[in-house]
């Protein structure tokens, strides 16, 4: 792997790590498999890109993106809690709807941000080399968000959220409205995913309605790889494991893309296949290991 592709992978790892943290909140904390993220990532990108091209400050555009993601998550959670639609189906419905919504927001399938001022620019102004600016910017933002999540999960409300995912019957009998907690959690999760999408768009200089395909699988891969490699005994450990899992996952992808067997090599379009195989391997590894040691 070249230094260039290494830095690129780290950069991607941190920016998509914010998304992975969102997936961690739904999947692990709330036990709510949420596929909305495939729609809320491009939603964040679209809102941020449109805002920036209309002269909005790029940081402010992140706030707008997170608000949009929050609302998207809220739709999924309300479909599930109030209208009693199965969580997976509810999230697929929102995700599909967001595809249309995103095209409406952008006014087309994609929107270029070339030449526009972005969050990354404010980091490169501090004098760091251009190709280090984005990874440093994303690392700083991602770590801040991780710390924020760790803090939240230690608050009274955060404990109620952890309990809601683990034992809803118990937490209801202790006076918590689990519907409210699920709506709050899924909304916040999608707000994070949207921020991640907005930063990706700002970094690559364009928002594209198709950029969300496979988000959930990448998010899951990060969560699972992170937990397997770095452990999840405490909340602090689990949250940083997810962020670092995302970096590790992107490095693994970069490594795979660099493999060549004679005339064969992977192309970026193989990414989803590789990811799926990676997730399946990580999920079944403990089981297979058990079987092997049993023999």
């Amino acid at each position: 792997m070249t230094l260039y592709s290494f830095i690129g992978a780290v950069e991607q790892g941190f920016v998509y790590g914010i998304m992975a943290l969102g997936v961690y909140i739904t999947f692990r904390v709330l036990d709510f498999p949420d596929l909305t993220v495939d729609g809320s990532l491009p939603l964040g990108a679209s809102v941020s890109a449109v805002a920036i091209t209309h002269g909005v400050n790029p940081y402010l555009s992140l706030l707008l993106a997170s608000g949009a993601g929050f609302l998207a998550g809220m739709v999924t959670a309300i479909l599930n809690t109030k209208l009693k639609i199965l969580h997976l189906l509810a999230s697929i419905l929102t995700m599909i709807a967001l595809y249309s919504v995103n095209i409406r927001i952008i006014g087309g399938p994609n929107l270029s941000l070339l030449g526009a001022e972005t969050v990354i620019d404010s980091f490169s102004k501090t004098g760091v080399a251009a190709y280090y600016a984005a990874p440093i910017a994303f690392a700083v933002i991602a770590v801040l968000i991780t710390v924020l999540i760790i803090w939240f999960l230690h608050t009274e409300l955060g404990l109620a959220m952890l309990a809601t995912g683990n034992n809803p019957k118990m937490i209801t009998s202790l006076g918590v409205n689990t519907h409210f907690i699920i709506i709050l959690g899924v909304s916040c999760s999608n707000a994070l995913v949207a921020v991640s999408g907005a930063l990706v768009a700002q970094n690559q200089g364009a928002a594209d309605v198709n950029m969300g395909v496979g988000t959930i699988v990448a998010g899951l891969a990060s969560v699972i790889v992170g937990e397997t490699v770095f452990g999840n005994r405490t909340i602090l450990q689990a949250c940083f494991a997810v962020l670092l899992g995302s970096v590790l996952y992107r490095l693994a992808i970069a490594l795979a893309l660099g493999i060549e067997w004679g005339a064969f090599s992977f192309t970026p379009s193989d990414l989803n296949l590789i990811t799926s195989i990676l997730v399946i391997t990580a999920l079944t590894a403990p089981m297979i290991k058990e079987k092997i040691t049993a023999i």
């Binding site: 230690h154 608050t155 009274e156 409300l157 955060g158 404990l159 006076g175 918590v176």
Partner: peptide, 19 residues
């Protein structure tokens, strides 16, 4: 953590530290 959750039964849960 379980006891902290129970100590808040019927009360408002906010953003102060749980335990």
């Amino acid at each position: 953590q379980n006891m902290a959750i129970a100590a808040k039964r019927g009360k408002h849960r906010g953003l102060s530290i749980g335990v």
